[in-house]
Computed example of a mutant assay.
Amino acid sequence: MTPAPAPLVVFDLDGTLLDTHADLVESLNHTIAALGLEPVSYDDLTHLVGQGARVMIERACRLRGHPLEAEALPALVERFVAHYSAGMPGHTQPYPGLVAAMDRLKSAGYRLAVCTNKMESLALGLLDKLDLVNYFDAITGGDTFPVRKPDPRHLTGTVERAGGDIARTVMIGDSINDIAVARNAGVPSIAVPFGYSDVPVSSLDPDITITHFDELTSELVEGLLKGSAAKVAV
Rank of each mutant, 00 (worst) to 15 (best):
P96W: 00
A100L: 06
A101D: 02
G141I: 01
G36Q: 14
H212A: 07
L8G: 11
E58D: 14
P7Y: 01
A33V: 06
M171D: 03
P94Y: 00
V99E: 07
A60Y: 05
K129I: 00
R59L: 09
V199H: 09
Y84M: 09
A101W: 00
A34Y: 09
H83W: 10
E78W: 04
F145H: 14
A108F: 07
A4T: 14
I172T: 06
A101I: 03
V133P: 05
K149W: 01
L105E: 02
E58F: 08
V187C: 08
T140E: 14
Y110M: 14
F213A: 10
D131Q: 11
S218Y: 06
C61R: 04
K149G: 01
M119S: 08
E38D: 15
G195Q: 00
A72V: 06
G87L: 06
G65T: 14
H30Q: 07
P94C: 04
D128T: 15
L132V: 11
L35K: 13
D23L: 05
D174Q: 02
I210T: 07
G195H: 00
F194V: 00
D131P: 00
S175Y: 09
T217H: 02
E69A: 15
V40H: 05
V159L: 03
L98T: 01
A4E: 15
L224W: 10
T140R: 12
V232W: 03
P146N: 05
I190L: 05
G65I: 11
L216F: 12
I176C: 08
A82E: 09
G142W: 05
K106Q: 11
I57T: 12
V133E: 10
A86P: 02
N117G: 04
T158H: 05
D207F: 02
L204Y: 13
G109F: 08
A229M: 06
